[in-house]
Design a binder for these strands. Structure first.
Lengths: 223, 223
DNA sequence: TTATGTGAATATCTTCACAGCG
DNA sequence: CGCTGTGAAGATATTCACATAA
C-alpha cells in the first residue's frame, strides 16, 4: 500500500472548517456544493479548496461539485470523528462553564464527559448536565469514561500542574485556555487558545490593514 | 525611506507570544533572554525566534541576547499597543462573562470598555466592573468610548447580524466566538475562535501523532 | 458545458550555517 | 567566547491554468 502522503498542517486545519460548513449546508437542505461556493463562505480560494479536498480520495464529481453527505462523512473520517472522543474539563470558572454549555458539542463526536475543579465550593454543582467532581478523581474519571483529551480552564498558576496531571492520567491531547504555553512530553498533542493573544493579534491586523490602505492611496500619487 | 518589508503573517502571529513571554520573564525579574531560551518556552526553534525578532530594528545584542525591557517595548510598538485599544463586547453569556473577567486584560493595552446584550434580563447587570447596556446603544458607545474593536459572543443565529451592526457603527476589527464564519467588507479585520473546531483539530492531531508513532515502529521492522 | 483534479510555476516560510559584533 | 543577524538552501504552501471527466 502506498501510505498516502501526510496532509499538510494548514490544509488539515482547514478540513475542520469544511466539515463545519458542509454540515451546516446539509442542514439547510443543500445536496452539493462547489469549491467556489464553499471557499467563498470561508474566505478561501476555490483552488485551495480543491487542492485540500483532493487529499480525500475521490471527494467530488467533475461538472457537478461535491456531494455534501459524502463530503461530510469523508471529512469526519479524515478528522478521526468516526468514533466518539471523550474530553475531561478541568476548571469550571467562566471559560469552563462556557465550554460546558457550548451547544454544538451536543451533536458533535467530541464531547466533554466530565468536569473537575479543586475548589470545594464548586464541587457538586451541575453545569450543562454534568456534576463537578474533585480533581483528585482525575485518574478514575479518565479510566471510567475512556477519556483521551483534556481541556485546561484554570488560572495561569495551576495550568502546568494540571497539564502534568492530565499527562500522568494517560491523556493524549490537551487544549489549554490559560495564558501560558504548557510543556508536554513528545507524543502528546497540545494547543493553546489565549483570549489576550487573540485580541492583540486583532489589533495588529487592524494596524496592518490601515497601513495597507494608506500605502495604496499613496501609490495613487507616487513620486 | 525603504518602507521596511511587511512582516510575514506567521511571524506576526508569533510576535504576540514573544510579547507575552517577555512580559512574564520581566515580571520574574529577568533582564535579558536568549533566542534559545525564549524559543524553548514556546516550542519554537531558536533560529525562528531570531529571524522573527530581526524584523524589529536592532532588538538584540550579539553575545548577550535580548534586553527584555527593550524587547517588550519594541514588540508593543510593532503590535500597535503603544496606544490603548478599546473593544466592545456583544453578548454576556458564558463566553462573554469569561472575557469580562479575563484577568490579563486589566494590564494590557487592549481592553473591553463596554458590554452589550439584547436580553432585557441581562441589561443593567454588572460583570467585571462593567454594566451591561442594550445593543441599541451600540453606535453611541462606539463614539463615546472611541471603540475600534468588536467581540461577538452571541449565539450562532445572531452573529452575522451583530457583525453588520458593528461594521455599521464604524468598528475596524472583529473577534468572533460564534461557530460560523462571519462576512465583513474589505478593509475590516476579522478572526474567529470556535471551541468546536479547536477540539476537533485536537482530536485530529492526536490521530496523526498516533499514526506517526505506528509508522515509526513499523519502520523498525521493515519489509 | 461545468467544475474537479493536478502538474508546473510561484510565492512563502523555515532551517542551516556562519560571518560579525560586542 | 557567546549569541545575534542574515545570506543561501531547503521545505512547504498556494495559485495558475488546463486536461479531464460527467
Amino acid at each position: 500500500m502506498p501510505l498516502r502522503t501526510r496532509i499538510p498542517r494548514p490544509a488539515a486545519r482547514r478540513l475542520s472548517l469544511y466539515l463545519r460548513e458542509g454540515e451546516s449546508l446539509l442542514a439547510i437542505g443543500a445536496a452539493t456544493v462547489s469549491s467556489e461556493r464553499l471557499g467563498a463562505r470561508l474566505g478561501i480560494s476555490a483552488a485551495q479548496v480543491r487542492r485540500d479536498l483532493a487529499y480525500l480520495a475521490q471527494a467530488g464529481q467533475r461538472g457537478v461539485g461535491y456531494d455534501l453527505s459524502t463530503l461530510v462523512s469523508m471529512l469526519s473520517r479524515e478528522l478521526g470523528l468516526e468514533r466518539p472522543w471523550h474530553a475531561v474539563l478541568v476548571g469550571v470558572g467562566n471559560i469552563g462553564r462556557a465550554l460546558l454549555s457550548y451547544a454544538p458539542f451536543r451533536e458533535s463526536r467530541v464531547s466533554i464527559v466530565a468536569a473537575l475543579d479543586c475548589d470545594p465550593a464548586a464541587i457538586g454543582q451541575r453545569w450543562g448536565g454534568r456534576m463537578v467532581e474533585p480533581v483528585a478523581n482525575l485518574a478514575a474519571v479518565v479510566q471510567r469514561e475512556r477519556v483521551e483529551l483534556g481541556v485546561i480552564a484554570v488560572p495561569i498558576g495551576s495550568a502546568q500542574k494540571v497539564a502534568d496531571l492530565l499527562v500522568g492520567a494517560g491523556i493524549r491531547g490537551i487544549l489549554n485556555f490559560a495564558p501560558v504555553e504548557i510543556v508536554v512530553p513528545e507524543g502528546i498533542a497540545a494547543s493553546n487558545v489565549d483570549f489576550g493573544v487573540e485580541l492583540r493579534r486583532l489589533a495588529m491586523d487592524v494596524m496592518q490593514e490601515t497601513a495597507a490602505l494608506e500605502r495604496a492611496s499613496a501609490n495613487r500619487r507616487p513620486a
